[in-house]
Design a protein around this nucleic acid. Structure first.
Lengths: 105, 105
DNA sequence: TCAATAGTTCACTAGTATTGAACTATTGAA
DNA sequence: TTCAATAGTTCAATACTAGTGAACTATTGA
């Protein structure tokens, strides 16, 4: 009877290396772009960058984004609600996120 | 009698994931900051982020920066001349480098 | 009660990072 | 010329990280 606990670093512990490392993967970048395009939250499968990715791989990508401080995950019924921690990232590294997401590739 | 050949991707092949991945390491970020602060080139040991790092590790970091398209290396005598490919990066991802290097950590 | 759904965790394999040791290439001095 | 010093690279070994199928947990709805 163990609830899944999500690890979210506080704003002050979000590191540049962590953020860059999390975004340095085409799949994770697409996940973040999807989340940035949404005003509200998305489930993991909604934000999945491609349909044929293994569930465990997707789950791992979300964990990496979460632990880097890029997204916040909460549980809502059977799904997970993922939101971009835009304010926290902007407070820590102003304009970085917007700039990275602005490049076409 | 094999000359060491350096791999430098052309500007068009510099990828965002490659650049972010290369910069997503505190040691490599420090190397790039050192190079950005210099107007001319630096040898590998001059740009070394800390004195106790193994030579092979340092060499590997420079290789990663080179293959990501962040630096250009040429041989000059017994040393290697490393320069930041600022124009190429700026052409490909405007303002990204300056922004990343501007954060204090 | 039981099946379906949404993710996580585990175990395995494959790729990548760090490092000491050995190697290559260049320079400068005896 | 010969030899040592210097600057990096390459190799081999170990340790860590990513991708994936299979098994598992938790929630919902029939």
């Amino acid at each position: 009877m163990f609830m899944v606990q999500f690890v979210h670093p506080p704003r002050s512990e979000i590191s540049l290396a962590g953020v860059l490392g999390a975004l340095a993967d085409p799949m994770r970048l697409r996940i973040v772009k999807s989340l940035a395009a949404q005003s509200d939250c998305m489930s993991c499968t909604e934000a999945a960058p491609c349909p044929d990715m293994a569930k465990s791989t997707l789950s791992n990508h979300f964990r990496i984004l979460r632990e880097a401080g890029l997204i916040r995950t909460s549980k809502q019924g059977v799904q997970h609600r993922n939101v971009l921690r835009e304010e926290d990232i902007n407070a820590r590294f102003p304009k970085l996120l917007k700039m990275i997401l602005s490049y076409p590739e």
